[in-house]
């Protein structure tokens, strides 16, 4: 197992290196300059670029950047004079991560709850409402939902604030917008898996032995039914923890997703690279933890890792 983890960490580092290299050159392919604005004279843009070494051969700049990156230095943001990329990451990521965590918790609770209800309910009405609702919810794009929520609950009804993140009330609309899709997916995954488990013989056996319905469901069937959900949580949490630009932008939330898009439109090369490498790290780490958690729960998977 330890060897497997080591291998995953090593491949993760190589992946990050490749990611940084590819991003470095791709970003430079986009026309524009971090010092260019509508009104800046071209001679001034050129002089400033020279001063920052952006006129040097690209490969030389690449080597210098990679050298700094290996020492853990992401550099200074071009469009925020005097602010380091690391500072920006530590300022924006907690905001995104708190929103993402809240959305993850909400979608897990709602998804497993509704999924269980879907599997155990005898009422066709409830089943239809839940599966129809989940189908509909997974079909609405996040940005459309965010706009609808904003218009109805903030602008029209004035129940919730429209922008910022300054109180628990501010969390309600963005978290709803972020969690609806994962909640729908988890509902369907849990519902289907649990229904299949409940048909199996060991459940029948447990019931025959006189084990209560609650214990049969939660200690036996759920343990197996949560495997597909766990497989989904890895990528979903990586998505939620790296921020959704659309939701952050609609609700004016100072998170990392919004910073990322602004850095691209402003051609803030160092910031784009820093954020890419950071988000890459988050995705790799979160997926690794989710995989290990899966292995811990699933003996078959564990065996496969051991053999690999």
């Amino acid at each position: 197992m330890a060897r497997y983890i080591l291998k995953r960490i090593l491949t993760g580092i190589i992946a990050l290196f490749v990611l940084a290299a590819v991003t470095f050159f791709l970003v430079r392919l986009i026309p524009g300059s971090p010092f260019q604005s509508a009104a800046t004279s071209s001679s001034v843009v050129e002089a400033v670029e020279r001063e920052y070494g952006l006129d040097r051969p690209l490969f030389e700049q690449f080597l210098s950047y990679m050298g700094k990156l290996l020492r853990g230095n992401f550099g200074i943001s071009y469009s925020n004079p005097g602010v380091s990329v690391t500072e920006i990451i530590w300022r924006t990521w907690p905001v995104t991560a708190s929103l993402g965590t809240a959305a993850l918790v909400v979608s897990l609770l709602a998804g497993t709850g509704l999924g269980t209800l879907l599997a155990v309910s005898k009422s066709r009405g409830i089943q239809r409402i839940i599966s129809g609702g989940a189908m509909l919810a997974s079909g609405i794009p996040g940005f459309a939902l965010a706009v609808i929520l904003l218009l109805v609950f903030s602008v029209r009804l004035n129940w919730f604030p429209s922008s910022g993140l300054s109180s628990p009330l501010h969390y309600v609309l963005p978290v709803t917008a972020l969690s609806l899709y994962p909640a729908a997916v988890i509902t369907r995954l849990t519902g289907n898996a649990l229904r299949a488990e409940l048909q199996k013989e060991y459940v029948l056996f447990a019931r025959a032995k006189g084990l209560g319905e609650t214990r049969t469901l939660w200690t036996h069937a759920m343990k197996h039914a949560c495997r597909p959900v766990l497989g989904y949580i890895g990528p979903a949490s990586a998505f939620l923890l790296t921020g959704s630009f659309v939701v952050e932008s609609i609700f004016t939330i100072p998170g990392i997703g919004r910073e990322f898009v602004n850095s691209i439109t402003g051609r803030d090369y160092t910031l784009i690279l820093g954020l890419t490498v950071f988000m890459g790290t988050v995705v790799i780490v979160v997926n690794l933890i989710a995989d290990l958690l899966g292995a811990w729960l699933d003996p078959e998977m564990r065996r496969a890792y051991r053999e690999s």
């Binding site: 990521w93 907690p94 905001v95 995104t96 991560a97 708190s98 965590t101 809240a102 993850l104 918790v105 910022g164 993140l165 300054s166 109180s167 628990p168 501010h170 969390y171 923890l241 939330i253 100072p254 780490v285 979160v286 933890i289 290990l292 958690l293 811990w296």
Partner: peptide
């Protein structure tokens, strides 16, 4: 350990309020 790691990652940011 794994669950603790996941919880720590999730709890690290906590609830961030960005008010005045």
């Amino acid at each position: 350990v794994l669950i603790a790691a996941l919880v720590c990652m999730a709890a690290m940011p906590g609830c961030v309020y960005t008010g005045y």
